[in-house]
């Protein structure tokens, strides 16, 4: 984005007040569901029934949070979301690291070591980012069974790495495209090899794109539901699947407060990442849609 710019229209005070009002109303619209979740997660069920969802809690209770975390009924176990949160952590860390490393080295090869067929290879990898995953569910389930990874966290890691490579490669390829070839050529003349150039010359200046890629992968994999629902067992389910079980279980009373606390727990890691480094998150979004 360029700095010295001004597309704003000459406007009266009245119009500006109108613009601000509109923008504020939209802000309320986007914040409202989060507000409802947060306030109602701090109310007792009695207070929720008696009052309305927009009222602030009269007396704050953290009981729903504790219950969502470690005693709510999920499936057959009153385990709370805790074990599933851990499953997600154990799944997301290796999957993000491996797919990011592969993307970095792939991007490096595709931009600095052009060989015949590289364009086609990249095209095929790129398209893989956008396929509807329904098309791979059946064979993937079989392959995971064949290699003994059905229903395991390792199986989910494999799945997320495979279907993440396309995006990570795209990110690094576009980033390294702008990296001067002269530096690579000079290093070659100095006798630096394939790995050394990557390690010593490209990687040290890859900070921003590494952050963008990690955030993108983290958000996508943490938020995944389809693969978790399709390939995980009860003891390897990620938190999104567990949350859905918690909220949609039809037995007994609907504990809205526990559901909201659980939903915020499930959203917390990606929300924190977003708050801490929203700028990089947006860059990832843009890189995933508008290239070049």
């Amino acid at each position: 984005m360029s700095q010295s710019r001004d597309n704003s229209l000459p406007t009266s005070h009245f119009t500006r007040a109108l613009i601000y009002t509109a923008l504020l109303i939209f802000a309320v619209y986007y914040l409202l569901p989060l507000f409802v979740m947060l306030t109602n997660s701090l109310k007792t069920l009695d207070e929720i029934r008696a009052g309305n969802m927009l009222a602030l809690p009269r007396s704050i209770t953290i009981e729903p949070w504790l219950k969502a975390w470690d005693s709510a009924q999920i499936g057959v176990d009153p385990s709370g979301l805790k074990p599933y949160f851990m499953n997600s952590v154990l799944m997301v860390i290796p999957a993000v690291l491996i797919s990011t490393m592969l993307g970095a080295i792939n991007g490096y090869i595709l931009t600095k070591w052009n060989f015949r067929g590289a364009g086609v290879m990249f095209g095929l990898m790129l398209f893989s980012c956008f396929i509807p995953f329904q098309i791979v569910l059946i064979p993937m389930a079989r392959v995971l069974g064949l290699i003994g990874l059905a229903g395991t966290t390792s199986g989910l890691v494999l799945v997320h790495v495979v279907y993440g490579i396309g995006f990570t490669t795209l990110f690094f390829r576009n980033y390294y495209n702008a990296f001067p070839d002269e530096l690579v050529r000079a290093a070659l003349l100095d006798g630096a090899g394939f790995f050394r150039i990557f390690w010593r010359i490209l990687l040290p200046s890859s900070g921003p794109i590494i952050v963008v890629t990690i955030i993108w992968q983290f958000t996508n994999i943490w938020n995944d539901f389809l693969f978790g629902a399709s390939f995980a067992d009860f003891d390897s389910q990620p938190i999104t699947v567990a949350l859905n079980n918690l909220v949609s279980s039809s037995t007994g009373v609907k504990e809205y407060n526990v559901h909201f606390a659980g939903a915020i727990l499930a959203a917390l890691p990606t929300l924190i990442v977003y708050i801490v480094s929203g700028r990089y998150f947006v860059r990832g979004l843009m890189a995933g849609s508008v290239k070049g």
Binding site: L34, M53, D224, F225, L243, A263, A266, A267, G278, L285
Partner: peptide
């Protein structure tokens, strides 16, 4: 305006389902 994009659809769904 942008933070919902960081949320899982399951979280969004839960919020709107009860809303």
């Amino acid at each position: 305006y942008l933070y919902p994009m960081a949320l899982s659809f399951i979280v969004t769904g839960t919020a709107w389902k009860w809303f």
